[in-house]
Design a protein around this nucleic acid. Sequence first.
DNA 1: ACCTGAACACCGTTCAAGT
DNA 2: ACCTGAACACCGTTCAAGT
Lengths: 219, 219
Amino acid sequence: MLDLAVDADMMKNSRHCRRERPYHHGDLYSSLVKAAEELLEIKGANALSLREVCQCAGVSHAAPYRHFRDKAALMEAVAKAGFDQLGAMTRDARTKHPGDPVMQILDAGRAYVAWATENPERTRLMFGGMMKSEDIDEDLHRTAEAAYDEIYRIIDDGRSAGVFGGRDTDSVVLSAWSAVHGLTMLILGSGKLTPDSPGDVRDLADVVGETMLSGIRSR
Amino acid sequence: MLDLAVDADMMKNSRHCRRERPYHHGDLYSSLVKAAEELLEIKGANALSLREVCQCAGVSHAAPYRHFRDKAALMEAVAKAGFDQLGAMTRDARTKHPGDPVMQILDAGRAYVAWATENPERTRLMFGGMMKSEDIDEDLHRTAEAAYDEIYRIIDDGRSAGVFGGRDTDSVVLSAWSAVHGLTMLILGSGKLTPDSPGDVRDLADVVGETMLSGIRSR
DNA sequence: ACCTGAACACCGTTCAAGT
DNA sequence: ACCTGAACACCGTTCAAGT
C-alpha cells in the first residue's frame, strides 16, 4: 500500500480513466466494467479495490451501487465479457476452417491459450470458482454455456464426419477441453511454465494439441 | 458480513481452534497454518481474514507477525503443505504399481483429482498464480518442484520401458499433466462440471485418463 | 523470545441528502 | 434517475509496551 501518488498518476494515464467529470456520467455501467478490466490486469484480483475502480472512472465510491448489487456483481460483468470473447474466438476458429475439424480444434486451442496468457487475471477470475458460487447471474451462465457449445459443435461435427472417435461427444469434449484448459492454467499458475513470447505459448499449445488429437482421433 | 455470532461459534467448534490460552502458545506457527487451512476451505480465499485465523488460534491479531512476514507468507505455508501432500500421493501411486507405468499414471491422476475436489480452496490457492509472483519462498518452489518430479519419473520410466512414446519426456509430462490438471480446474471452476460423489469424480478422471493415455502411448 | 493493545490507513456497503 | 459525503464495521500492518 505504498506509492499512492504513483498509483494515482497511473490511473490518470490509464486508457479508461477520465479527467473531466460532469455530475451525470452518461454510461457509468460500461465505464466501470472497462476500468475494472484494466485495473484487474494491472493490480491483480487480490489487490483490486472497488474504490480504485471508482476513482479511475471518475465517480464517488458509492456510485457503482446504482448499477451493481455489489463488488462481486461488477466482477461477474467482467467475467461475462471474457466468456463472450472466448466464445467468439472459438466460433471464428470453426468458421475459418470449414470441413476441417482437426484444424478447427487446434486453432481454437491456440486462441484459447493465447487469450488467457494475454489476460491472466481475467482468466483466473472466470475459472477461479466464481461460476460455482450459488448466486450467479443467469446471464453469465448462459454466456459461459454459449462458449462451451462452440467447442461441442466442433467435436460433434468431427465425430459425425468420422474424424474423431470416442464413446460420446461429451466425453471427447471433456478430454479435449481439459487438455487445453489444463495447459492454460499451468501457464498462468505454475512457476515452472513461463513462456516469454507468444511464439513459445503457441509451441506449448501445439505440443499439448497434438497429443490431445492422437487421443481423440478415430482409430 | 452477517451472522457474526454464528461464525464465532463455528470457530470455537472447529477442530483446530482453542478455547484455553496460556500467554505463550507453544507452537503458534503450525497452529496458524492448521487454522488457516481449515478456515480457508470454510470461508473461501476471498473472505478469509488473518484476524479470523488469529481468533481461531486463540491469539491476538498481531501475533502472526512474529512467525510470518505477512498474510501472504502464511498462505504460502498452506500452499507448501498442499504440494507436499500432492507429491506424496503421486509417489504412492508410483510405488503401488511397480513396473506398470499405465496404472501408475492413472492412479496418480485419480488421486490428484480426488484430492483437489476435497480441498478446492487449497488447490485454487496453489495454482491460482501465487507461484508466479516475484517474492516466493525458495522452500515453496522446491516443494512444488518435488511434486512435479514424481510425475516426471513415472513418465520417464514408462518411456524407457517403451510403454509411452513422444519426442521427449517433458512434452509427454506436459500433455499428461495438462489433461489431469485441466479436468481438476474445470471441476473446481466451472458451473458445468458438478460431480456430486467421489465415484462421479473418479469416472470423470477415468474418461480423461483413458483419452490422455491413448495420446501418449507408444505406437 | 513471544505476545498484546492501541493506532493507522485502507476497504466494502449503506443511506440521507444533493443535482 | 443518478450521484455524493459522511458514517459504519471491518481489514492488514506497525510498534511501543507488557510477560
